[in-house]
Simulated scan of single mutants.
Amino acid sequence: MVTAPEPIAEDLVLLFTALAATTQAQVTAEIAEAGFGDLRPSDGYLVQHLQHGAQTIGELAAKLGITAQGVSKAVIEMERKGYLTRTPSSGDQRKRLVELTERGWEAIYASRTARAHVNRELRASLGSGARAFLDQVHHLAETTGAFAALTERRLRP
């Protein structure tokens, strides 16, 4: 026997999905207003692995769980937009190191600023219950492994 699905108002998966989509759209819009309208949310998955130093295409592919060809395509596009640069590796001239440009770092700052703004708005809408709600969401993220995936940069596009 098939059971009826939970009502939408009680379906945590759908509610979190909807909240993630609408807040991501707000962050994306604020990033665009800051002058980075050519960035896509998926670009952040690549950029997150470059904040601690240059990486090769192969290293990025392994961390992102996609092919080197897919990473190369994304890197070339982001390089054309001025966010990344590729330079020959000192140890192996066949390998190219991918790193952030000044514009790439500026985009990271704009993204952090936009997320902070959206976070403030969300917390304000929760009022005095914000801390308890955040604690509960953090608990869910811990017990499902989502928090570890986030902090270990294992989230996939």
Rank of each mutant, 00 (worst) to 15 (best):
E6R: 04
E6M: 05
E6N: 05
P7L: 09
P7C: 04
P7K: 11
P7W: 11
P7M: 08
I8R: 14
I8H: 07
A9F: 09
E10S: 11
E10Q: 15
E10I: 00
E10L: 11
D11K: 07
D11P: 10
L12F: 14
L12C: 14
V13W: 05
V13T: 14
L14D: 08
L15K: 13
L15N: 13
T17S: 15
T17V: 13
T17W: 07
T17D: 13
A18F: 02
A18R: 04
A18Q: 06
A18V: 01
A20Q: 13
A20N: 14
T22W: 11
T22L: 13
T23P: 00
T23H: 08
Q24D: 08
Q24A: 14
A25T: 03
A25M: 10
Q26F: 02
Q26I: 06
Q26M: 12
V27H: 02
V27M: 12
V27P: 00
V27L: 05
V27F: 01
T28P: 01
T28N: 14
E30N: 14
E30Q: 15
E30C: 09
I31L: 14
I31R: 13
A32T: 05
A32R: 07
A32S: 15
E33G: 03
E33V: 06
E33W: 12
E33C: 03
E33K: 15
A34K: 07
A34D: 02
A34T: 00
G35R: 09
F36L: 08
F36Y: 14
F36E: 05
G37K: 07
G37M: 12
D38Y: 07
D38N: 08
D38W: 03
D38L: 12
L39C: 10
L39A: 06
L39I: 07
R40T: 14
R40C: 06
P41L: 04
S42Y: 05
S42D: 04
D43L: 03
D43I: 02
D43K: 04
G44M: 07
Y45N: 02
Y45D: 00
Y45E: 05
L46T: 02
L46N: 00
L46D: 00
V47Y: 02
V47H: 01
V47Q: 02
V47T: 08
Q48N: 04
Q48I: 12
H49G: 03
H49P: 03
L50S: 00
L50M: 01
Q51R: 15
H52P: 00
H52Q: 10
H52V: 10
H52C: 01
H52I: 04
